[in-house]
C-alpha cells in the first residue's frame, strides 16, 4: 500500500505517497520532477542516477524511496548555490570540456562531490577510483578527470578563503 512520507530533497521537504517498491530514482524523477537525476541502467553499474544521501553518493535506482524518510537527499539540482552561480564542480566540468552528451554529467558530478568534499586534493588514481562507478561513452574520461582535479583546487581555495 502507498505510504505517505516526507522526503528532504535539496533542503526542501516534499510530502509524497509511495509504494514500497518505488525507487528513489522513480520518485525523484516522476513525482518531484527532478529530472536532472538520470536513469541509465537500473543495476548500479552506470552511475547516471547518483544522488547524495546524508552526504554519501548512492545509486538512486537501487534505493527504495520508502527508506529515505528523515534523510538529507541532494540531487544535481541542489548542487549550484544559486541559479546564476555554478558550483566549482559544475564550473570546471563546463570549462574543461568534461561534458559532451551530458547524460552522465549529473551523476558524474555527484560522484566527484562524494570524493572532493573529504579529499579536495585527490591523486589521479583516487579520482579515477572515485569515478569508476560512473560510465561515460563520449569523453574517454580524460577531461572529466582533469575537471575533477581543478574543481578540488577551487573548492579548497574557496574553503581557505572562508576560514582566513
Amino acid at each position: 500500500m502507498k505510504q505517505v512520507i516526507v522526503l528532504n530533497v535539496n533542503g526542501e521537504p516534499y510530502t509524497v505517497a509511495v509504494y514500497p517498491w518505488q525507487t528513489l530514482n522513480e520518485v525523484l524523477r516522476e513525482e518531484i520532477n527532478l529530472t536532472g537525476v538520470k536513469f541509465g541502467c537500473g543495476s548500479g553499474d552506470c552511475g547516471a542516477c547518483t544522488v547524495m544521501v546524508d552526504g554519501r553518493a548512492v545509486s538512486s535506482c537501487l534505493t527504495l524511496a520508502i527508506e529515505m524518510q528523515g534523510k538529507e537527499i541532494m540531487t544535481i539540482e541542489g548542487l549550484a548555490p544559486s541559479g546564476e552561480t555554478l558550483h566549482p564542480i559544475q564550473e570546471s566540468f563546463v570549462e574543461k570540456g568534461a561534458i559532451q552528451c551530458g547524460f552522465c554529467t549529473p551523476g558524474m558530478e555527484m560522484a566527484a562531490l562524494n570524493l572532493l568534499k573529504n579529499n579536495p586534493t585527490p591523486s589521479d588514481y583516487e579520482i579515477r577510483e572515485a569515478l569508476a562507478g560512473n560510465l561515460c561513452r563520449c569523453t574517454g574520461y580524460k577531461k572529466i578527470i582533469e575537471a575533477v582535479g581543478v574543481a578540488g583546487q577551487k573548492m579548497k581555495e574557496a574553503s581557505e578563503r572562508k576560514t582566513s
Binding site: 548500479g44 553499474d45 552511475g47 547518483t50 544521501v53 554519501r56 553518493a57 548512492v58 545509486s59 537501487l62 534505493t63 560522484a111 562524494n114 570524493l115 577510483e129 572515485a130 569508476a132 562507478g133 560512473n134
Partner: peptide
C-alpha cells in the same frame, strides 16, 4: 567489491 556508490549502500 564494487564502485563507490554501491559501497555506500
Amino acid at each position: 567489491t564494487a564502485n563507490a556508490q554501491v559501497r555506500n549502500m
